[in-house]
């Protein structure tokens, strides 16, 4: 049996965006338009600015959605910017967005695409 080979992708970054419940779809749509291949969404609860806004804090939902998107480094800033604008993160209480550098990742790569890059 031949030794199995795994193709590992490098130059990838993780964009994580935390928004209020129900906004994740907007984030994913913006990221897809920017060229992202997929997204993982988790439900969560969060605190922070809500408690410090007084009565206005009621307009911020405690329930959040965490959107995880892995993108290529070349796309990174473009998608980052698109998400920031689409989720209106320049408004208080709307959430936050950060990027984590990834060492490597692996997933299914269609054989025809893989062949194109074969050395």
């Amino acid at each position: 049996m031949a030794k199995r080979e795994i193709t590992v992708l490098t130059d990838a970054s993780l964009i994580t965006c935390i928004v209020q419940r129900g906004v994740a779809d907007t984030v994913v749509r913006a990221a897809s338009e920017g060229g992202a291949q997929g997204a993982t969404i988790c439900f969560a609860r969060g605190t922070g600015v809500r408690e410090r806004l007084g009565i206005l804090g009621l307009a911020v939902s405690v329930e959040k959605e965490i959107v995880n998107i892995i993108v290529a480094n070349d796309q990174l800033d473009h998608i980052f910017e698109k998400i920031y604008l689409a989720a209106k993160l320049d408004t208080p209480g709307m959430g936050l967005l950060y990027v984590t550098p990834l060492e490597k990742m692996a997933t299914y790569i269609p054989p025809d695409i893989e062949e194109r890059f074969a050395p």
Partner: peptide
Amino acid sequence: PGRISLRPIDAYRL
């Protein structure tokens, strides 16, 4: 942490 005071435009957008 202290209270955050918002500008009217931010309160409106919130």
